[in-house]
């Protein structure tokens, strides 16, 4: 099988599932037009719910908007906000699910697919690294910046995450 999943310390390079922005956005509205839907897809893969993805992404854009004149790298900051807010959602959901598991019925839109199941079962950090690498096509350095961790940590998260996805991927 032509795969390096879980079998190597090296993580394969992604073929981005998300086209890069055609050019650097010079206004907030340009950034919104270029990145809203791609960010919605990333957030959906992270939180597994359209409604919550919308909440995450709109909040992230609002934070970028708020700091537009002071941000050197708006797309990078946007990624970071999406990741942070997605983790907030997953944290809150974990607590709420402990108290009330039926809430999951509204937050499991990814579960219809086996890969969705496997993705949803990953710890948030591994899930985020996998999605940013293999769907959004970010480099390890970009992922490290988005997740506020060291590049070495990203490599570890990807390696472990892929190892956990191996069962699904090899089918």
């Amino acid at each position: 099988m032509n795969t390096a999943v879980g079998s190597s310390a090296e993580v394969p390079s992604p073929a981005s599932g998300e086209p890069e922005a055609p050019e650097r956005a010079t206004t907030f509205e340009e950034l919104f037009q270029q990145r809203y839907e791609p960010m919605m897809r990333v957030a959906f893969l992270l939180v597994g719910s359209r409604a919550e993805a919308e909440d995450v992404v709109q909040d992230a854009f609002a934070r970028v908007n708020l700091r537009w004149s002071r941000i050197d790298n708006p797309p990078g900051y946007l990624h970071r906000c999406v990741v942070n807010r997605s983790h907030d959602v997953l944290r809150r959901r974990r607590v709420e699910q402990r108290l009330w598991w039926m809430h999951r019925h509204e937050t499991s839109e990814l579960d219809a697919d086996e890969m969705g199941d496997a993705l949803a079962a990953l710890p948030p950090a591994r899930r985020t690294a996998i999605v940013l690498r293999y769907y959004a096509g970010l480099s390890e350095q970009q992922i490290a910046e988005a997740m506020d961790v060291r590049p070495g940590t990203v490599k570890s998260l990807l390696h472990r995450g892929m190892a956990e996805l191996k069962r699904v991927i090899e089918r």
Binding site: M1, T3, P12, S13, E29, R50, I169
Partner: peptide, 29 residues
């Protein structure tokens, strides 16, 4: 040494194949 695994990207993309979220004015508002 194994090579890249295109099926990972493919499977992730499949999860959002039908997912559309255009950048509408409603969202901007």
């Amino acid at each position: 040494m194994n090579g890249p695994s295109p099926s990972v990207e493919e499977r992730l993309r499949r999860l959002v194949d039908d997912f559309t979220a255009p950048a509408t004015t409603t969202a901007l508002r």
